[in-house]
Computed example of a mutant assay.
Amino acid sequence: MQMKKFLPLALLVVLVMSSCTSVRVVSDYDTTASFNTYQSFAFFKPGVDKAQISDLDKKRILRAIDTELTAKGMIKSDNPDLLISIFTKERERVDVYNNNFGWGWGWNPWWGGGFRGSTVSSRTEGTLYIDLIDTTTNELVWQGMGTANISHLSVDKKIARIQEIVGKILEEYPPQAGQ
């Protein structure tokens, strides 16, 4: 009987933990751009230099982008069709969960025997933007954005997380008709 009272709480914890592992991705693009003509890329150094993250993380992101675009058949070039720029945003996310489980009514948390209270958790959430700029027109033709939890990761886990985030963002490139 006591276990049934804590089952909803256990389910909430599993849901919260699983939401921390997801990467939320959005992309936007210029509908007049001919994405099938873009075959080569280079990194836009002034844009990359402005990204407010450590140089180690910049290198990890650039390697992951290079790997993903190369896997799509593109080549790195000194005379590219696309310039790749990145920027990042970071914010502290605070989640408050109201745990009003149980039965009964009244202001007393023990009234009716149910568990009542709130749980507060915080985590650092980072957003990575990847911009693709047409070198002929110098205009942004595609932008992908991925948001994910980046709190307290070991180096190996951080590398894997960055690869996952970049991979999810670039799954959206090139855009498909009707996307």
Results as ranks from 00 to 15, higher is better:
Ser118Glu: 15
Gly102Gln: 10
Gly117Met: 10
Arg93Tyr: 07
Asn108Phe: 12
Asn79Ile: 08
Ala177Cys: 06
Asn98Arg: 12
Leu9Pro: 03
Gln176Trp: 04
Pro8Cys: 03
Val26Pro: 01
Val94Trp: 11
Lys59Leu: 15
Val14Met: 06
Trp105His: 11
Gly126Met: 11
Ile159Tyr: 05
Glu172Pro: 00
Glu171Asn: 09
Met3Ala: 14
Ser118Cys: 06
Trp103Thr: 13
Asp49Trp: 15
Val13Tyr: 03
Gly112Phe: 07
Phe43Pro: 00
Leu62Asp: 03
Lys158Trp: 01
Asn149Tyr: 06
Asp55Lys: 04
Arg91Gly: 11
Ile159Phe: 04
Asn108Asp: 14
Leu83Val: 01
Thr67Gln: 12
Gly104Ile: 09
Gln143His: 03
Thr67Cys: 04
Asn108Trp: 13
Ile150Trp: 04
Arg63Leu: 10
Ile169Leu: 01
Gly112Val: 01
Gln179Ile: 08
Asp156Leu: 06
Lys59Ala: 12
Arg161Val: 00
Arg123Glu: 11
Asp66Leu: 05
Val14Ser: 05
Lys158Gln: 09
Asp95Pro: 01
Lys58Ala: 11
Pro8Tyr: 06
Met3Gly: 10
Ser19Glu: 07
Trp111Ser: 15
Gln52Glu: 15
Ser122Asp: 14
Arg116Ala: 06
Trp110Asn: 11
Thr147Gly: 02
Phe44Gln: 07
Lys157Ala: 02
Thr127Phe: 03
Ile169Lys: 02
Ser154Thr: 12
Arg63Pro: 02
Thr67Trp: 09
Gly146Asp: 01
